[in-house]
Design a protein around this nucleic acid. Structure first.
Lengths: 206, 206
DNA sequence: ATTATCTATAGATCTATAGATAATGC
DNA sequence: ATTATCTATAGATCTATAGATAATGC
């Protein structure tokens, strides 16, 4: 195996990620990915067997990259809203460094597809670690205090993610096609952060 | 021609709308639409020539149905925010009566596709009538007053639509998959209405 | 020997059209 | 005669695999 160069598997993953993020699952084509990667398209099947497997591989890889961000969170912030805020900041930090179409991708290709959504949540439940455990515990406490009505933790997470990715998608779309500049986009980001939080707390009032 | 029954063309349009809204352009299939409509699939080409044409037909039909709602707006409300609010209410009223996946459809199939977006905006510019003219004029005035920074009217419209459809999509998704009930969804709707307005005004501050 | 890569192609769709046949309006 | 409908099929993709060939590791 070639160790001092990037492996073919990695090259394929990179090409697949670009293609899937740009076009979504259905519009992404195996031949097009192979062309991007500069390999025979049979190679994609050699390494990943099917288009679906390749998709899941890049999905998990993408989510995996988010974990180190979460790991940075300080454990002091033990209020419900505090943890919510910190997690969002971690996630925003990560998304900002990535492809701007990433939130749109999450919304359209993951959250709206039952199977992918489950994959996504399962991964967090298994690997999410401290921030998720803390938030789950704090949510439980809020429910018991009666400030928040009973809701499953996974549903709560989806609620958060759906609203946040929807807002981020909207901002990204505006940047791309409405001539909204970076400065304005940042302003929007700041405002939406606070609003979505309030929106969700409002929705969860008993 | 058969006048006392629904025309084949109408039946095809209905079937196509269901299919396109459910699956989006790429995942919608001509054979599937034909099956829904109960006709040979060559009929779709006989009436609409191509998949793209059929899509545009349902797109324009959908938008056309929105006009009567706008026509209801009272002409008294001549403040900038007043017209914005009225138009959103009209649009919400319309959307609520429709397929719940309609906002998601607008976001993913229209706003994110340059050509469809243009089609959409052109139609409003031509047929939108009073509410659009009023809003355009009021926007102009705000810009001159210096309360809002210069922005093209079409860009302003897209900004509005993107944020609103994103929020509505998020709510619809939550309803479908997070077990959010109607009452909560309505609460969310109320809150997001005010927030998006503030969000956009914030973004447009000079 | 095993692993990685390529070429060629099967098999499944999907859009679109050609051409035959039935229904309708003068 | 014209319009509407159906059957059959061409032609274009796209995913996936078979089988040959080259590269690599013992």
């Amino acid at each position: 195996m070639n160790n001092n160069e990037v492996s073919t598997e990695q090259i394929i993953l990179e090409a697949a990620e670009t293609e899937f993020l740009e076009k979504g699952y259905s519009n992404a084509k195996m031949l097009s990915i192979a062309k991007r990667a500069g390999v025979a398209h049979s190679m994609l099947h050699y390494y990943f067997r099917s288009k679906e497997n390749l998709f899941k591989a890049i999905l998990l890889r993408k989510v995996h990259l988010l974990l180190p961000e979460f790991a940075k969170l300080q454990k002091q912030q033990l209020t419900f809203e505090g943890v919510m805020r910190s997690m969002r900041e971690a996630r925003d930090r990560y998304i900002m460094e990535q492809n701007p179409s990433f939130p749109y991708f999450i919304l359209t290709e993951i959250l709206t597809n039952r199977e992918n959504r489950q994959l996504f949540l399962d991964f967090f439940a298994k690997e999410g670690g401290y921030p998720f455990l803390a938030l789950e515990k704090l949510l439980q406490e809020e429910v018991e205090k009666g400030t928040i009505r009973p809701i499953a933790f996974t549903d709560f997470m989806l609620l958060l993610m759906t609203f946040d990715t929807a807002s981020l998608s909207a901002i990204a779309i505006c940047k791309e096609s409405v001539g909204v500049d970076n400065q304005t986009a940042d302003k929007l980001l700041e405002v939406y952060r606070e609003h979505n939080m309030q929106l969700i707390l409002e929705a969860l009032r008993p």
